[in-house]
Design a protein around this nucleic acid. Structure first.
Lengths: 337, 337
DNA sequence: GCGTTGTTTGACAGCGCTGTCAACAATTTA
DNA sequence: TAAATTGTTGACAGCGCTGTCAAACAACGC
């Protein structure tokens, strides 16, 4: 399993190492005939570059890291799949790194050990200004998924959380619901706040009684949705629908309702946000807003690799469309008994 | 952010580069006083080794990969956490790599690109003889989680799937169940077959009627559990309990029962295997066999790093105990109506 | 024809570290 | 005390690649 080196390719092709290097890295200023000859020899020899030598000499690592602090394996898995699609075909290595609080310290320790060429940030880290600035100061290119602040600092992919939630809430209103509770996500999670805004926009536009549309605090975990739903159903026994700021919490709501002996959607309609695997799995299947998470992750990864290569700085924002997945946890409101 | 090099440490400590290198790598044959002096200087300078230079010179990569092909993000996440605990504190980088069929080809392509010092295999890859042999032939140390064949080929961690499933089935029998269906996992998954064996052992020992204890085929996915349960409940309308070979399928069973209007556990008792997050989440909470997945992953990772360093070949097998988590999907059998 | 530009190429150093091997110091043995 | 053994150290080459810079070459205008 002796490895082929650039030297051998150079000898066989009758050129210098440097020219081989140029061809292999797609650099300009190589005559087309030379380029093809080198490529042919490299292919014949089944050449694989030595990433360490390359990294040592070029000071690039060919590694991109995804920093996250997300409690949902489903979400992570989708992000990883998206990142992976892109890195795999580009010769980059993708590494997933869970960060712990304090994030800047955790990230700093990691970066001290392992050089990375770029970093992908997903919520809630996308909105962590300290972390973003720290990475930028170190000169590490970053891209973000669904950031909600400091938009100018990096390229990013996003969906319109506000209008998506508004549309979903309107769907419930159309079904006749008038007393709708909202379960909010973490305060520091920008997208979560947008979703709350969308909820309020819809209920206000419909002229619903504000006190009959209470908001409960959750933290995006299934458990917090479960607990919030318990509170919502106890304190406001007459809510007929609950909008949760993400799927995990919505699943918690469904479980709480089932435990309470309520029929879903007969007695209580529930909606989520994300389009996570969990919402597919449970019965009844969750009505939710499906985000194209994989596609978003793939897109930001592409942008990141471009930025790494180009060293340029025109930040891009790519908007993705969501799909309202109307499934089995929503139905017309029961006529008041 | 100028990086400190070994040269600077050598100068300040008044020794050669090589001696610094020896100290930093914990090699023997350095006088204790010299060792301490070097360590002190390195700490003062906050030295961080350049992994690429080190890898280039030593032909080690300080990367371990976890190859997997597991449909369950929950399981993966636990494995990653366990691996990570160990690698993080050892200066190694852990990379998760999903393999696709054919595995040996997929793995081969990966290894051609990225050198790894060792590989961790989890089910069902643990049982893939071709893959295991390919890695071994390339001289890559491997460790496995829950392998069911070729035990002598690597160190591994395992639980006793047979007796765990037997015990869980006995629990149902004690509750009075006599007509119990089993939903089997993939045929190529060794542990899944052991679980089926445990099921049969329990039902036979209790003298249950074999034809009333049918086996249905699943593939470890929630969906397959759902489908198998539909078949089980339709074909053998009188089964009062279902033992699933993993949690995801058990959740599918619960969902199928709910959809059918059955009460769980009132009309149907269900048990799983794994102790996955999904089983915690749903209501009723799943009665299951909890495997210490994180601990197992951490243990095999430690063994792997030892093997990498020591280059020795005494294979170890570490057995882990399972816990029978009796929760809310099992209850005494309904008296026949 | 000659200078001027632009394009293509290669010689060479060196990225930061470790392996090899030889030199030397300390210790044990005869 | 000399010889043999063991422990400690450093000089040096080189891992496989890329950056720098200068040389060679081609194309063009006057």
């Amino acid at each position: 399993m002796k490895n082929v080196t650039i030297i051998e390719i150079a000898e066989r092709a009758g050129v210098s190492m440097k020219t081989v290097s140029r061809v292999l890295n797609g650099e300009p200023n190589v005559r087309e005939s030379t380029r093809e000859k080198v490529k042919k020899v490299a292919a014949e020899l089944n050449y694989q570059p030595n990433v360490f030598a390359r990294s040592l000499a070029s000071k690039r690592s060919f590694v991109v890291a995804h920093f996250h602090d997300n409690p949902s394996p489903d979400y992570l898995e989708k992000i990883y799949t998206g990142i992976h699609q892109v890195t795999r075909s580009s010769g980059y290595l993708a590494v997933m790194e869970p960060l712990t609080v304090p994030y800047t310290k955790s990230a700093g320790e990691y970066l001290a050990r392992f050089k990375v060429d770029g970093v992908i940030l997903s919520p809630p880290l996308s909105d962590n200004t300290a972390l973003v600035e720290m990475l930028l100061e170190r000169g590490i290119p970053i891209v973000r998924i669904s950031p909600r602040n400091n938009f100018e600092l990096s390229s990013y992919a996003y969906v319109d959380d506000t209008s998506a939630t508004k549309a979903m809430t309107e769907h419930l209103i159309e079904l006749g619901h008038k007393k709708i509770a909202f379960i909010a996500g973490p305060r520091e999670h920008g997208a979560a706040r947008k979703r709350e805004t969308g909820f309020h926009q819809a209920t206000e536009a419909a002229g619903l009684n504000k006190s009959e549309c209470p908001v409960f605090q959750g933290d995006f975990s299934v458990r917090s949705g479960f607990d919030a739903a318990k509170a919502a159903l106890a304190n406001s026994g007459d809510v007929t629908a609950i909008v949760a700021a993400n799927d995990d919490m919505a699943v918690g709501v469904v479980m709480a309702a089932l435990k309470r002996g309520l029929d879903v959607p007969g007695d209580l309609s529930v909606t989520g946000f994300d389009g996570s695997r969990l919402g597919d799995i449970i019965w009844p299947q969750l009505t939710t807003v499906k985000q194209p998470v994989e596609e978003m992750a793939a897109e930001v990864t592409s942008m990141l690799l471009e930025e790494i290569v180009a060293k340029e700085h025109e930040k891009k924002a790519v908007k993705f469309d969501v799909t309202n997945l109307i499934r089995n946890t929503t139905s017309i409101v029961k006529s008041p008994s």
